[in-house]
Structure formats: C-alpha cells, structure tokens
Design a binder for these strands. Structure first.
Length: 563
RNA sequence: GGUCGGUUCGUCUAACGGUUAGGACACAAGAUUUUCAUUCUUGUAAUAGGAGUUCGAUUCUCCUACCGACUACCA
C-alpha cells in the first residue's frame, strides 16, 4: 500500500536559518508538492543550551518569504488582542503548532514540548537489549579521549570499550538501580551490534555499506535534562509523524547507519522512510562549507533575511534586505545542486514542482556564485511590469530625495514636480535593463528627479572644451526657440514617449549634423550638464522626462559653473 | 588519525560505454549606439593522476592525490 508522501524540514533553532537550510526546505517542499503529499515543519530544540530566542520566528518568516509554507506543524499566531495575528501587510503570522488539530494531528511539533514521549522509547530499546544505561561522567569520558589522543588513538564508546566502562552491561543490577535512582548524570546509549554490515540506500547516492564495528554507541537520552538527543528524537518523531522520505543535509550521512539500526531495533523497518542526503553548499573561494563569515568577507548574504544576534547585536545581512526577489532566491537555490536536464534555468516555484526530481540532484558540493545570483535577480526584475517596479521604487525615491542635499539647494523645476506613478512607471520601464536590483534605480535615474550637485572633474576636463561649450550655448538657444512635446500625465498613448524622443532627437541631431559637429562631443557635454557625468541615460530620454524648462536650466547652470 | 562521501571549463552544470565534451554565469573581442548599459555575433576555457575491463571509458573497477562531512550527554 502506497503511503501518502510526508516529508519534513526539521531545523534546530540555534540561530538564523542558513541558505543551505532554505535549500533543504525547498527540496522537501517541492518533493511533497510533486507527490501530492505534506510538507511538515518540526523544530528540533532538544539542546536547551544552544537555544537562541527569535530563531524559530526567523525560520518561519524565511520560509514565508520564499513562499514555501509548511502544510503541517504551524498555526496562525494569536495577537495581543486575542485575534489571529497578521503582519504590517495583513499577511498571517505563524507559529509552531502545540495543540493537536485536524491540520496538525501530530502536535506538538516542537521536540521540547514532546519531552515526556521519548524516554519510554529509550527504555523499550533497553528492555529488548538494544540499549543500555551508561554512568560514565563527562569528565571521565573526556579524560579517556585525551589519553587516547595522547597515544595517537581515538577513544570511542563501542562494542569493545563498553565492556570495561561503567554501564548496565558491566555493573550489577542493584548498583544500576541505585545509580538510576540516585544520580542524574547518566545516559542511555544505543548498543551497536557487533560485527555486522549495514547496507543502506540513498535516493541520491545509491547503495552504501558500513561495518558496525566502526560505529560508536551514541547517547540516545540524557537524565540530566530528561531530553533525547537528536538521533532518538529524530527517529521517533519521523516514525510517529509517518514520514516517508527524509531529505536532509549531507552532514547526516555518517549517522545514517545508526538511524538504520535504530529503525531495526524498534521494529519499524516496514515504515522506515527513504533517505536522500543533499550535498553541502561550499565557500565561493577556498575550502569548506559556506559559513556566516564568508558572507561578510566576500560581500554577499548567507541568510535569507537580515539577522541581529540577540546577544552580541551583530548584524548579518539577508537576501531580502539586499534587494533580492524571493523568486530569484528560490530559483538560484533550486539550481544549486539540481538541474532539470534541459537548458531551462528560470523557474518559478510552481514550475519547479513538476520539474524537480531527487534523481537529478548532484552528489558533489556546490560552490555558491554571487554573480550568477545577481543574474537571477536581474531576470526576475526584467519580468516585472513598470507599474510593479514603480511601486517598489516609490519609497526608495522618497528617501533618496529627502537625503539629497542638492535637491534642497537647487531651485529646479523638478523640485516642484509631483512625480506621478505614471512618471515613475515610465522611468522604470526605461531603466530596468540597466539594473540588477530595484535598489539601484535611484542611482541610475537620479538625473530624472534632480539636477546634478556636482560635475565629474575628469569629464569636465575632457568635454568642456571651448568648442563644446559654445556649441552647448547654441543648443540652449535652439531648445529655447523650439517647442517639442515632453512627458505629461495626461498622455496615455503607448507610442507617445517614442514619438517625443524622436522629435527631440531630430531637433538636436539635425542641428548638430547641419553644423557638422562631432556628435559624441557635444552630446556628452549636455549629458554632463544633465547628470553630472558622461555615462548613463540617453539625451532625448532625459529631456523627455525633465521637460524643456529644466533642460534649459541645467544647460545654463552647467555653462555658468564651468566658465 | 579513523569512518563515510565527493572530484567535467574560473563558477553552476549537461552528456543509454561511441558527441568536434553541450549550455549558463563570469571574462574577452566585434557589431549597434550621442556616452554607459542593453541587445546581437564570436571567442578563450574542463573530464585530478595512474592502472585495469572494453573494439571503444567523462561514464564501469581498483590505486593514488586532493576536497569535504562526521568523529559530543550539538543538531
């Protein structure tokens, strides 16, 4: 009988979710959706020492931003007013589900809240001879480790060493009973079977084998905090939550034999999930897996969202705050370690669902490449409508104008212009192919909103020759004496702008050609007066947007300041 | 050190055991253009090394090298 596909993403709330973690979540999500199954979120917070406040919300917010919401394990939060919580945009705010419900039949989904559940499973293993109590103190064990290391050996708690250590296999029963009742630093360890070969299968990597004698007796449960370790909690919860496929990071590969053995010891082999281990995301340069430091060092985010360390106040940048679209982030993550087998590179989340397959996930680690990441964002930026871009640009424009001192100091016509949505949309349509990110819009288009505060010295030197200046003077007269159409909110014809620009260009180039001036010279002089340097927007586009009066003002101002 | 995994252009990657080893990013050149950018065209660039199996190996096997993960009462 085929079971319903149920996969889970099970992060530990020990800090901000890494982009590699988002990728793992994404692959789980895609797999679930493709198979008409459920994507479950479970919080693995069995390490009370490393709990970081805010990390859980961060995970939820990151997933929501990416559009990969869990089907199970979350519930809409309750606001201070007792009503379902929503954020500033009216979107629901989620939290981890603690109460059982139709949607969340396996609640709670935080392992810390499932605490009472695990001990019985550990005891069950002991009763069946698959585990034992261990009473060695942490100090004793670290001493043994240090000694072994001094002899260039490695101490492991295994089938051999357990025979000489303090545990329920070596101690008399009454002593074991006494220690369990009177001390609280003991643990329950898994008893790795001796001399067996564990044969495993991985959906991505294929067949693997490991000798049990190379494995160590992992701690499953700790009396000190009455909590399970990852291994126990993970297997028990995956079983209880009826997980069908475990898709997780490659750092778990060495634990796979233990997990196989655990399923066997519990007698859950029939329903054991299938496993898929994803390769790691690597540093763009050098060695090792991608870390927080790399982002700081190389200038790109490793986290989906900005994160402020609650203890140190240290801030880590995020893709969202850096101006990436979630679609671009998801797309680039999907292609980092997976490909569709075709040459298609651009996928929306919806398109990813049918295209995805675990079989096509790459075995080797992938180095993250910032340039490609920017390219993805650029592709999505270009797919946006001018109106959408204008809406994004509006608040940035407001901030920029407020911060621009030259704007406050120049008596320009544009100062009084109310930049309409139509104006912004037309500007965005013009500049979107020049940008990778919407946050570059102001830099690219500032000349369309304000006169330059200063002129680039090198450009002045190069283009403000006596000839060019006198030509600019003539063009000032030409523009003053001629009338031509420019931007207006009233005109809605789609071809209007093109027509305007053609007319402006005819006027200028016609005159320049007639005079036999060098186009590249005088045009650049004008551009310098319009924008402050000689790189960027086309002259006729600028004039179209700023209008005749402002055009004359800027040429006059340029001529006056250079002389 | 031990265990496990990995290795195709600088990067992400494609290639039933048979291809001039393909694409994308980046880079370079050219074309277009009033500058810059865009766009278009073209180019540089790879199977880690060595054995073996085979008519034939990027592909299968082994060895070496390198890289990585794991080696906690962390996940």
């Amino acid at each position: 009988m085929a079971r319903q596909t149920r996969v889970r993403f099970a992060p530990s709330p020990t800090g901000p979710l890494h982009m590699g973690g988002v990728r793992t979540a994404l692959y789980n999500y895609l797999y679930a959706k493709q198979n008409g199954g459920k994507f479950i979120l479970r919080i693995e917070d069995t390490d009370s020492q490393r709990f970081v406040p805010g990390a859980e919300d961060y995970i939820l917010e990151s997933l929501a931003w990416c559009g990969i919401m869990p089907d199970e394990g979350i519930v809409q939060a309750t606001g201070t007013d007792g009503q379902p919580a929503v954020d500033a945009n009216g979107n629901p705010v989620y939290t981890i589900a603690s109460e059982k419900s139709e949607k969340n039949p396996h609640a709670p989904y935080r392992q810390s809240e499932r605490k009472p559940l695990y001990r019985q499973y550990a005891e069950q293993l002991i009763a069946n001879g698959y585990a034992y109590y261990a009473f060695d103190s942490a100090e004793e064990l670290s001493r043994l480790r240090a000694e072994a290391e001094a002899n260039k050996q490695t101490f492991i708690y295994n089938y051999e060493s357990r025979k000489t250590l303090k545990n329920s296999l070596t101690l008399p029963a009454d002593e074991v009973k006494r220690l369990i009742e009177n001390t609280d630093t003991w643990t329950i360890r898994f008893k790795i079977p001796e001399g067996q070969t564990v044969k495993m299968n991985d959906l991505i990597r294929g067949e693997m084998e490991v000798e049990t004698n190379t494995l160590d007796d992992k701690v499953l449960w700790k009396a000190a905090d009455q909590l399970p370790t990852y291994h126990l909690a993970n297997i028990v919860d995956d079983h209880l939550m009826e997980i069908t496929e475990v898709i997780r990071g490659a750092e778990w590969l060495p634990s796979l034999p233990l997990h196989y053995l655990l399923y066997k010891a519990f007698g859950w082999e029939d329903t054991m999930p299938r496993f898929a281990h994803l390769s790691l995301l690597l540093k763009p340069d050098g060695k090792g897996k991608l870390s927080k430091r790399d982002g700081d060092r190389l200038g790109f985010p490793v986290f989906p969202l900005k994160w402020t360390n609650p203890e140190t106040g240290e801030i880590s940048r995020g893709y969202r705050e850096d101006g990436y679209y979630p679609e671009a982030f998801v797309n680039l993550l999907a292609l980092l370690g997976w490909n569709p087998g075709t040459e298609q590179e651009l996928f929306t989340l919806e398109e990813l669902v049918p295209a995805f397959s675990l079989e096509r996930v790459i075995k080797s680690g992938a180095k993250f490449n910032v340039e490609k990441a920017k390219w993805f964002n650029e592709q999505y930026l270009r797919r946006r409508t001018p109106q959408q871009l204008a809406a994004e640009f509006r608040p940035m424009l407001r901030d920029a104008l407020t911060a621009t001192t030259s704007y406050a100091n120049t008596a320009t016509v544009t100062q009084d212009l109310k930049f309409s949505d139509k104006y912004l949309a037309e500007v965005c349509a013009l500049i979107k192919e020049r940008a990778h990110f919407a946050n570059e819009f102001w830099d690219i288009s500032k000349a369309l909103f304000t006169a330059p505060a200063a002129y680039d010295e090198a450009d002045v030197k190069k283009f403000c020759t006596p000839d060019n200046l006198s030509h600019a003077e003539e063009l000032h007269t030409l523009i003053a004496e001629n009338s031509f159409p420019t931007f207006t909110d009233e005109e809605t014809s789609e071809t209007y702008k093109t027509e305007c620009c053609e007319k402006i260009e005819e006027l200028l180039t016609g005159y320049i050609k007639a005079k036999e001036w060098k186009m590249g010279q005088v045009m650049n002089t004008l551009r310098l007066f319009f924008t402050g340097n000689t790189r960027g927007l086309g002259i006729s586009d600028i004039i179209y947007f700023i209008g005749k009066e402002e055009t004359l003002y800027r040429i006059r101002k340029g001529l006056d300041s250079i002389k």
